[in-house]
Design a protein around this nucleic acid. Structure first.
Lengths: 251, 251
DNA sequence: ACCCCTAGGATGTCTAGAGATCACGAAGGA
DNA sequence: TCCTTCGTGATCTCTAGACATCCTAGGGGT
């Protein structure tokens, strides 16, 4: 709790007033907030100062500016995404999804997909146990929920393992990539997920339509087959405002 | 991959040049970057534009401005934090930590701790299966690594379960809270962790000494005993730049 | 050798403008 | 009725300054 007697920049005072108004329910999700011109007049500040105040709300993920339209209160309705382990315990072909049940009623589709064979980058190659530049099957996808892109995923598989199989096609068939790997005798039995969070790069912000101030969650999943070899690396970039990750464990 | 022919704001061009220089190794972690005055001269732009360019690097967590000193490349040396399940599979008293081995050599301590009995807030009470306002044992801690605060944790336990036991003291003894719960016959056998990420509130930024542009990771862990009751809720706030979360699963 | 203290330089805050770009609704034409 | 065009207003980019605040290095005194 910051002492209220402290000297505070103008833009912070304005930002706090706006935040209080949002929290009090004066403005609801989707409502338009007072814009730059309104704040200039109301508080008697310059344009850049009003912008700075609105920037605070944007950087905290409370508001979202739409160029030419105004600044609006953001809605927060995250996807619940379950850890891979529950899915793995069932059969690959069971048709169950990694997403929780409430997603089923929403419109989640893949709107961009590319599958190609490329040289594996340094870090990926090291994990997969191949040489940097060795051929890898690279599958990049973008997932869109209710018209909003929420997930970028890039999967790497050693080309030596999957060349000539259906995995190198866009549609990998029922059970997905893991189902096909199982048929090849390289079904994953162990997974590791590494989770990071940071601010998006300009490219990520563009592809996920992120507004200023929303972080991304990075998940790097490595799948291991029974003999301990890494058979897949899947790098995922998630809009943090759109996701809650769920992990369940039994001790 | 953005087309290079596109018209781009000056501050983005400058920011990209700086980022490229950092990635090429021209500037290393801790090095001082060209400041506002340097950029004004080099690129012939106004002060606010140079600031905006540097702001991009700060908001992406690449650089950190120190008032009166300059803008510096941030070092990213995250803690690797293992999921609770590996720890749970061992004995609570085994002395093994939730942190990976590389943390052992660093200086991780609790520098703030408070234990009290309070009324449980709405959301916590619902999870714990008690009435809102019913007494709960609340343990708040701040963890400091190498002098930098990295983790805020608040643990809630039903007071009816733990009143009069060592759990209500600051030092819960070997094996920690879960060890004591096991002695009470309420040892946790199942866990759920929910992970979110967002920008910090002003209070979180202060307590974790966060600089502009670093998100926080929120982990809400619920521990369940054998009879399916929730026996603990642990809310954690992590400096995203200081952590990588690791989850391992067997299918 | 050590300490204090000051001057310079750095970022932070703020002003008052200007043109560019984009969204949206209103007016007008087919 | 539908579509196109256009103007208004909104955010975005950028300029050229000014003062405030803070860090740091170096000089001078002890």
């Amino acid at each position: 709790m910051p002492a209220s007697g402290e000297k505070q920049p103008k833009y912070q005072r304005i930002a706090e007033a706006l935040k209080a108004a949002v929290e009090s329910g004066q403005y609801r999700a989707g409502d338009r907030l007072p814009g730059e011109n309104d704040l200039m007049e109301t508080y008697g500040v310059a344009r850049m100062t009003a912008r700075q105040a609105l920037g605070v709300l944007q950087s905290e993920g409370i508001a979202e500016a739409r160029k030419g339209a105004g600044v609006f209160v953001r809605s927060f309705r995250p996807l619940r995404r379950r850890g891979i382990q529950r899915l793995a315990q069932e059969h690959w072909g069971s048709g169950r999804s990694i997403w929780s049940a409430d997603v089923e009623s929403r419109d989640l589709v893949v709107d961009q997909i590319s599958v190609s064979e490329e040289g594996a980058p340094e870090g990926i190659a090291r994990v997969l146990g191949i040489e940097p530049g060795d051929p890898a099957c690279v599958r990049s996808r973008r997932f869109v929920l209710d018209g909003k892109p929420v997930l970028l995923a890039t999967s790497y598989l050693p080309a030596a393992l999957v060349a000539g199989t259906r995995i190198t096609e866009q549609d990998t068939g029922p059970g997905g990539t893991y189902g096909r790997l199982a048929e090849l005798g390289a079904g994953p039995v162990r997974f590791r997920e590494e989770i990071r969070s940071r601010m998006p790069t300009a490219d990520e912000a563009t592809r996920l339509h992120l507004t200023t101030g929303t972080p991304v969650i990075l998940i790097c999943r490595t799948a291991f087959s029974e003999d301990g070899r890494a058979v897949e690396v899947n790098e995922m970039t998630l809009d943090a405002a759109s996701y809650v990750l769920e992990y369940d464990f039994d001790a």
